[in-house]
Design a protein around this nucleic acid. Structure first.
Lengths: 153, 153
DNA sequence: CTGCCTGCAAACTCTTTGCACGAAT
DNA sequence: ATTCGTGCAAAGAGTTTGCAGGCAG
């Protein structure tokens, strides 16, 4: 799915839900889909304001759940204080995260077996799985050996 | 490991680290190990105060990392606002959590393959895994069919 | 026009911290 | 006698919400 297609899908989603297509919501969408990496609400606010400086923090926080619900964004919680988000256009739904504790980068890796695991384990408990998440926290080998992280921005 | 053994281990850990064995820390330990299920800092405070009413919230928050570091407690972050903790006496280290979205109960299940997965995936990225977590969110079948969750406390 | 959306700022939740007193070693 | 530990309350971070005015449909 291209960004343009995603933008249409977003507008469509808003209309169907009886929500209004506002400049602020579109600015937030555009800012989100211009990000290369995972971003926080605060980072999104900065970028959205660069597009439309009337965007407020409150609207960012109010729009993030809408975009998550419409499956255009994925919420990634790595157990830090802040939540992260990514545009869902590029990745599959069944992904695991590898978080580098040195450079704080989040790598995403397809993990199709996760779904199988979720169903297997849940059914034993009489539950129906809704979502899975698998996260690995790790240290950077290169940093340990050379003192410099090659991925550090 | 029995609770009594764990208590000794805790005292021992404190001494070795040059930390003091105080009544408050012991009360917090006892409260933690009296819990059947996962608990929050706030719940622990209530129970610890029942043992020693001089225990303060601050001390609970200061003691939890110590108990986690000493491997007597495991921290379980299920992406909600509060963190949960469990006495580590009964479970293995490689566990996955299944969280019921209806009754909010946390089930823990041994998942030995997680470690293998972590190393495999990390080494491809030039990283050394530190920890893994696998979580499944699920809905209760019985609740959906009968309207009542059999596990609801 | 109607009512959802918005920005602002205050409120909220969970957790951390500075300080002076108190207790463990 | 020293220090470290403590309770208290305030601060802090991230997020949510009440309100009065604004703009989409």
């Amino acid at each position: 799915m291209t960004t343009t297609e995603a933008r249409e899908k977003f507008k469509c989603f808003l209309s169907k839900k009886g929500l209004r297509v506002t400049n602020q919501r579109l600015a937030i969408f555009d800012a989100a889909f211009a990000q290369i990496e995972h971003f926080t609400a605060e980072q999104l606010l900065v970028h959205a304001r660069a597009i439309d400086d009337s965007v407020s923090r409150a609207t960012v926080y109010r729009t993030l759940p809408i975009m998550t619900e419409s499956a255009l964004l994925r919420e990634v919680d790595i157990g830090q204080s802040e939540k992260f988000y990514v545009a869902a256009s590029t990745n599959a739904t069944q992904v695991a995260q590898v978080v580098c504790l040195d450079c704080n980068k989040i790598f995403e890796i397809s993990a199709p077996f996760m779904e199988w695991y979720g169903s297997t384990v849940s059914s034993k408990l009489g539950l129906t799985p809704v979502s899975q998440r698998l996260q690995v926290s790790a240290h950077c080998n290169v940093l340990r050996q050379t003192g410099v992280c090659p991925r550090k921005t």
